[in-house]
Design a protein around this nucleic acid. Sequence first.
DNA 1: TTGGAAATGATAATCATTTCCATTTTTGTG
DNA 2: CACAAAAATGGAAATGATTATCATTTCCAA
Lengths: 130, 130
Amino acid sequence: MRMSTITQRMNKSDLKLIAVLERTGGFASAQELHQILRREGDGIGLTTVYRALQSLVDDKIVDLLRREDGEAIYRLCGDNHHHHLVCKSCGDTVEIEGGAIEKWAKTMAEEFGFREVGHTAEIFGICSKC
Amino acid sequence: MRMSTITQRMNKSDLKLIAVLERTGGFASAQELHQILRREGDGIGLTTVYRALQSLVDDKIVDLLRREDGEAIYRLCGDNHHHHLVCKSCGDTVEIEGGAIEKWAKTMAEEFGFREVGHTAEIFGICSKC
DNA sequence: TTGGAAATGATAATCATTTCCATTTTTGTG
DNA sequence: CACAAAAATGGAAATGATTATCATTTCCAA
Ligand SMILES: [Zn+2]
Ligand SMILES: [Zn+2]
Ligand SMILES: [Zn+2]
Ligand SMILES: [Zn+2]
């Protein structure tokens, strides 16, 4: 029996990162992931975290997106993704479904011949408490 | 006759940046815009370029997007609200309608009691040429 | 004219990400 | 096991965009 191409490429650090991403769910930056691992007693280096994330992105095992400030954030591919409704005043955040968005993104991408498509969508306003 | 609120806020640097963006068309980074102005003999400082772009973004006169590597890029806003379909590889951008998004944002905001609502939505992928 | 507010820009500080490179770990082979 | 080659690792320094400081200059209304 042979291991898959992907599994062959996986090393210890890759697996650690996947584990953290599974555990935390959602998005996290390289710096955050590094801190989490450190807090848990793992002495992994920041360089290695960046390297592992890069290779996981190359292998399409994790998605890479950008925060509003440009910082890279990562999440496991196939995580059920959601969108956010954020209060501009108090910062409260509600996770919401984006059914309509998913369809819209797909349709638009097809219409213009794009592939390997991803999307971002956030709603912001003032919540009822503020 | 009164000037508009926006025009009142405009200063010399803002106008310079708008002019360059009009002339060049499409997206450009702060650094690139600064270089262009310098090349044309304008001694404007990088700090001022960043400041002007920031205020233009605040006033919704320019759009701010991100290159694949996270660098901020700017472009003059069309007058009507729209969204973007961006190629991760070559940076080509298509302006698209967001009918479904507009409705979705409105619905969600109502459902959770948010007011003064805005939203962002971008689609990214690989274009047919790449 | 003049005093204060706004604008400017050089410089230094920040901060994420990359590059370098020396050291450690793993792996394959006899 | 022994041992060399290859792969992985991580600290330190380099990079590069963006932001914060702050002294100086320009505006402008009174
Ligand atoms: Zn709130
Ligand atoms: Zn979605
Ligand atoms: Zn393209
Ligand atoms: Zn919209």
